[in-house]
Design a protein around this nucleic acid. Structure first.
Lengths: 122, 122
DNA sequence: GAATCATATGCACGCTTGTTCATATGATTA
DNA sequence: TAATCATATGAACAAGCGTGCATATGATTC
């Protein structure tokens, strides 16, 4: 049975619409994908992830590197932790973080190239 | 000359910090990268981009496909247009949009796979 | 045990963002 | 020309987000 288009006025052919609809994903996947990108939509977090992809770092050093306050970085790390994107290791007073998610590094690097190629105009 | 660390207390070796710092990008690139990801951080826009990567569509059809109002979609299209991510073509009353930026499709698809592999836990 | 250090957390505030509603624009049709 | 259609736009509002500040926690050092 085809998709019910009862009443709605469409312009492109129904076959076309149907074809596009078939390529759409489940709502849940879409939501999670958007959430993942949300992580990368903040400059501080982008820098944090770049840094953590290069070395395991404690909060203070990370804050120093990305140029944000300890508090801000700690807050953001919680987000990354909750999403399972960073690894966490305690050593005395310090907490060491590193990038858990290798895919993230790939996606980020690819996108940076993309921006470098000139398209991120704004 | 090494990076000036005057006064700040670092924990990891300075060489390590220096190495990580070297891998950091210019502020402008970081900002634009974050902006690009910002585009993909909303479910409606994710759906729009998926749809537009499969076919050229007019506003109404696109709205129908992604399940949002014409107005909402039009607003979002303006954002995408301003960022140079979609192509625009007028035909009579209708305006047809398509994905200008092929990289975007690649990045998006790669990230969807990534989410499918189970990491987008939230 | 007191002081200090590294990190974490709750709250508040300002800013951004996505949507809706109303209206405008511009093209087609009657 | 009037009415209608597709799209665009502006104002307004709610919700979410990033940060600073104060404070808490837990480990080390004196």
């Amino acid at each position: 049975m085809p998709v019910k288009d009862a009443g709605e006025k469409l312009h492109a052919g129904k076959a076309e619409i149907k074809r596009v609809n078939a390529g759409m994903m489940e709502e849940g996947i879409v939501r999670k994908t958007a959430e993942l990108f949300g992580v990368l939509s903040d400059p501080t977090r982008v820098k944090m992830i770049i840094a953590l992809s290069k070395a395991e770092l404690c909060v203070g050093d990370l804050a120093h590197i990305v140029g944000a306050s300890d508090s801000a970085v700690s807050h953001q790390l919680r987000t990354l932790r909750n999403m399972g994107l960073v690894d966490y290791r305690r050593e005395g007073k310090q907490a060491f973080y590193s990038l858990q998610d290798k895919h993230l590094k790939r996606i980020l690097e690819q996108s940076i190239d993309h921006v470098r190629e000139g398209l991120g105009s704004s």
